[in-house]
Simulated assay, not measured.
Amino acid sequence: MSQSLKHTQKRILVVDDAATVRMYHRSILEGAGFVVDEAINGIEALEKALTQPFDLYLVDVNMPKLDGYGFLRELRRQGIPQAPAVMISTEAQRQDRIRAYEAGANLYLIKPIKPQDLLTHCYLLLNLPA
């Protein structure tokens, strides 16, 4: 089975209120063979995660209705299979990283992210060959 066919089994949810960021991440991830869904805020993301859990979550911090920290805290409280989550933000302060990890993030990245860096982190968190 080819590497990209293996990736098609993996579902990633991109959670960001900015359409341009969602499209950017989607194009990179789908280009690598992942199945991608999107949510515009933490509430929509939680509804999707509870319907059908994902293999990886890419989560923005600043969003309306329910921010990334709140989404991850709620997600981690649910009795569903848990998957890694990457918090992606323009916030670069130490306390932002700490809040993300306390909320349940596995990794914290600063925007903008280079395509190869995004894929490398996804492969590592999904335990896939790069």
Score class of each variant (00 low, 15 high):
I113K: 07
R76H: 09
Q52Y: 09
E44T: 11
G42R: 10
Y24K: 03
Q9S: 14
L126W: 01
P64G: 08
M63L: 10
E30W: 04
V36L: 03
L125R: 01
Y101H: 11
Q95P: 01
K6R: 12
N106W: 01
L75G: 01
G79Q: 11
E102L: 13
Q3L: 15
A19M: 10
L124H: 14
E91D: 15
L58F: 02
S4A: 12
L119M: 07
D37R: 15
Q82A: 10
I28T: 07
I40Q: 14
K65C: 08
G33T: 06
D67G: 08
M63E: 08
R97S: 14
G68P: 07
K6F: 10
V86P: 02
M63Q: 07
I12R: 05
T120M: 12
D16A: 07
P64H: 06
I88C: 12
V59S: 09
F54W: 09
Y57P: 02
N106S: 13
V61L: 14
L124C: 11
V21P: 01
M23A: 14
N62K: 10
L125N: 02
G79S: 12
L56Q: 06
L29H: 02
Q116F: 12
P64E: 09
K6V: 13
N106P: 08
E38Q: 14
E91H: 10
C122F: 00
I113Q: 11
R76F: 07
I43K: 15
A18W: 08
I12Q: 03
H25Q: 14
A18N: 15
G31H: 07
Q93H: 12
V14S: 03
F34T: 07
T120L: 12
K10P: 02
D96Q: 06
L75H: 13
F54H: 15
C122P: 01
L119R: 00
K114T: 07
Q116Y: 12
L29D: 01
Q93R: 15
L29Q: 00
D117Y: 06
F34N: 03
D17Y: 06
F54S: 06
N62I: 00
G42I: 07
L29S: 01
L29A: 05
Q93G: 11
E30V: 11
P81S: 05
I110L: 13
V21E: 07
F54D: 01
A19T: 12
Q52I: 04
I98P: 02
D60I: 00
D67M: 05
S89E: 05
P84E: 02
T120Y: 11
P64D: 06
R73D: 03
G33S: 04
T51V: 10
G31L: 09
V36E: 03
A85C: 11
A105F: 04
Y24N: 04
G31K: 08
R26T: 13
E38D: 13
V59F: 06
N41M: 01
R22M: 09
A105Q: 03
M1P: 08
I28H: 00
M63K: 06
R22G: 06
G42K: 01
E91P: 04
E44A: 12
R73H: 03
H121N: 14
I80L: 14
R11E: 04
V86C: 02
G31M: 05
K65A: 14
K10N: 11
A100F: 00
K114Y: 11
G33I: 09
F34Y: 15
N127R: 14
T8N: 14
L5E: 15
G70P: 05
I113C: 11
L107Y: 05
E102A: 13
I88M: 13
